[in-house]
Design a protein around this nucleic acid. Structure first.
Lengths: 417, 417
DNA sequence: CACACTTTTTTCGAGGCTCGAAAAAAGTCT
DNA sequence: AGACTTTTTTCGAGCCTCGAAAAAAGTGTG
């Protein structure tokens, strides 16, 4: 904010812009990049020849036989050899890791099943260390430098994306994964919230629909949210924030997994739907885990006949609707993507949800609220993590030029505005 | 985001930074500005001599007899003669206007009482036009150019700050004040939400406490909010947003002024407190206006003895507490300033508010939540509008240099990032 | 097959901006 | 009066972007 801009900042920004245009556009020519960025052809030419010389970009000859007259455009693409990234995804009873090249191609991967809730703190950390070490030692990297690691966790992280503060998958709290992994491997690490990564993925999948303002809601055992506002990921002042599932739906209402009462999740999470469908008291302790098939059976029962199952999904829809209504009172409506297991039951949840929104301040503009379901949560998470890792390399490492790469001080350097 | 940075953008940014440092610091020397901005002495020297030549800054000799050795610092200050700004404030039954010089000194002002709820649309607009015309013709301006007009309204504005979309003070909606006033006076205008201006003022009053993240809550006939997150004013995707008062406290609960049910305002606005204190049904139509003295009497009664008045304030506190709890679930805690008439009754509201927050996700970090009361809402609004208008001139007009001032196209030009 | 035409990309000199170093300025201290 | 200290200005160097012109690499046509 109050920091002045020097000459090399300008170059850094413009380099970043060329890299970003290449990652977005895929095969963009220099002329196209000049048009997108508004910079002159000479500038783009200079920057891209630098980037090619540094091994960050490569020229690609388009297959399409240029049907136009004139000198054919030369496509620019990210050089897959330029770097690698590794993403780790830690969720309930599951840890997986993926290696990617700089162009985003999968190099290799590994999944492990582990009992995250029972694992001691040290062993949980060790599992992450080990799976990461196996990636770094894997021959598929073929000497390329891993320049970035992203760890996505189901749970709350701190605003600096360095620690996992709290998670439903383990009793342990405040695990400084970024510090631990950086100390061991000397590669920059961030710890991200899984829902934020899903939102990130939506942006890359469908930039038309999910661009400046949108909402991703994870409907699963718990309720999560990733929120993009004015083009950037929304986070809390101290944590990854946006604990939509723990907004209050009914003061002093149903018992939530978090121990408090009346949270949206206590009506709309899998455990809450199950609890209501089974006719249990809403003050009953939530079940720890529910099989995917069990939820699908509930949904099928709800579709087949009117009864407690149908009512349970309706209650979930109502809670989500009132919650969204309150959210929309704050941020106005935006496109919503429903992600995760229970998004497949949106036919059961949707009607009550719409009805509830209509009774809130959000109902004002119920026309401009659109819903979309993306049941494949895992694929979305993987994509989001991958793009997060790669764009970090784009912005913070390659945009700075070769010099900055050598100084280890740049490990935590701040992002270009 | 995708737009490249050219050479003059750099100068513009650095000019803006020097002006901002001067407005903040008051009497800052060139050396101090260099230290703040991180730019070299030579650059600051060049920029400030430009700004002085353009009549934007002036050198001020400090009164303090420099107790240090060495060449004394020369203070830089904004030249009051450089420009003028006019602010209009439209609220229930009241319209006021203020003229300011570029340094923020009051030149002259006017207040009018009018029956905003009964006024036809045309006349309401006319009143604003007229009070503004009288300012522009007033001799106090002494030939200085009015470069900016800010109109703050009690109500919702659009995200571009050009129209008043809805307001409790008039039945008329979607009044494009900015277009109307610009067409008539050819001076750039924005229409702002009053609570946002109060938040803006807090920032200037106490930058230590209210800097990057904080909340201003207006406790008055209705409930309003101004929210600053990560250093910038938070607005909705389509409107000025942050309709905190219309988040849902109890689904299908008490009747709100907005016609819906269960809004926070329907428990915590003056009319709701009055309704509860008087023992009326919560579905009863809200009273239109309540005298300040009447609310003070209620508060006094609540302090004197336990009874329906005390209970009414407690209910208000509970609604605000659950609402804040939900808000904190999204954005994490931040310092809160309670503004307006009922902030003076915070002794009655506070206990129930804290208790409610403790029962929500916000209760997690109840240690880091601090409250502060600022009963003088009018003064805060005036300050906020003034600073909004002046900083617009700083950034969008003077930072661009003399050339840009002449092109009328710059009227709506976008803000420097 | 040579030559005109079109479009993309590179080259080159000009102009702006910031920087560091040195000089100038404007005081205090002895 | 002269030494000393600190602030501010001056000046040349080094980048960066820009526009114009040149070069490159195709297609279309006789």
């Amino acid at each position: 904010m109050t920091v002045g801009m020097r000459h090399d900042d300008l170059r850094r920004r413009n380099r970043a812009m060329v890299i970003a245009a290449t990652r977005r556009g895929g095969q963009a020519s220099r002329t196209e990049i000049a048009a997108i960025t508004g910079l002159s052809h000479s500038t783009i030419s200079a920057i891209s020849s630098d980037l090619i010389a540094e091994g960050i970009l490569t020229e690609t000859r388009q297959e399409a036989p240029a049907l136009k007259r004139g000198r054919p455009q030369i496509g620019l693409a990210l050089d897959p050899q330029a770097a690698c990234a590794v993403t780790l995804m830690l969720s309930l009873n599951s840890l997986s890791a993926v290696s990617l090249d700089y162009a985003g191609n999968l190099l290799e991967e590994e999944h492990r099943r582990l009992d995250t809730r029972a694992l001691p703190r040290g062993e949980l950390i060790c599992e992450c260390m080990d799976i990461l070490r196996r990636r770094l030692e894997h021959p598929a990297h073929a000497g390329r430098h891993v320049l970035r690691i992203v760890l996505a966790v189901q749970g709350i992280t701190d605003a600096e994306a360095r620690s996992m503060l709290w998670s439903p998958i383990t009793p342990h709290t405040d695990i400084p994964f970024a510090d631990l992994l950086e100390a061991r491997f000397s590669i920059p690490v961030t710890v991200e919230n899984d829902c934020n990564m899903m939102a990130e993925a939506l942006r890359w999948r469908d930039p038309e629909r999910y661009r400046d303002d949108f909402i991703a809601i994870l409907l699963s055992h718990g309720i999560g949210m990733g929120l993009v506002l004015k083009g950037s990921m929304f986070t809390g002042t101290h944590s990854s924030g946006v604990e939509f599932g723990h907004m209050v739906h009914r003061p002093d209402g149903a018992l939530c997994r978090c121990g408090r009462r009346g949270c949206i999740e206590a009506y709309a999470g899998s455990y809450a739907i199950w609890r209501n469908a089974a006719g249990h008291d809403e003050n009953e302790e939530p079940r720890g885990d529910i099989e995917e098939t069990e939820m699908q059976a509930l949904a099928q029962a709800a579709r087949d006949h009117d009864g407690p199952e149908r009512r349970a999904f309706r209650i979930a829809g109502e809670a989500l609707g009132f919650g969204l209504g309150s959210l929309f009172a704050l941020i106005d409506p935006a496109p919503v993507a429903m992600v995760g297991l229970n998004a497949a039951a949106f036919d059961l949840i949707g009607p009550a949800l719409h009805e509830a929104i209509a009774r809130t301040a959000g109902g004002h503009h119920s026309g401009s609220i659109t819903f979309d379901t993306q049941p494949d949560q895992v694929a979305l998470l993987r994509e989001g993590c991958a793009m997060r890792a790669l764009t970090f390399i784009d912005h913070r490492i390659f945009a700075a030029g070769r010099a900055a790469q050598d100084e280890p001080a740049s490990l935590h350097s701040s992002l270009i505005a």
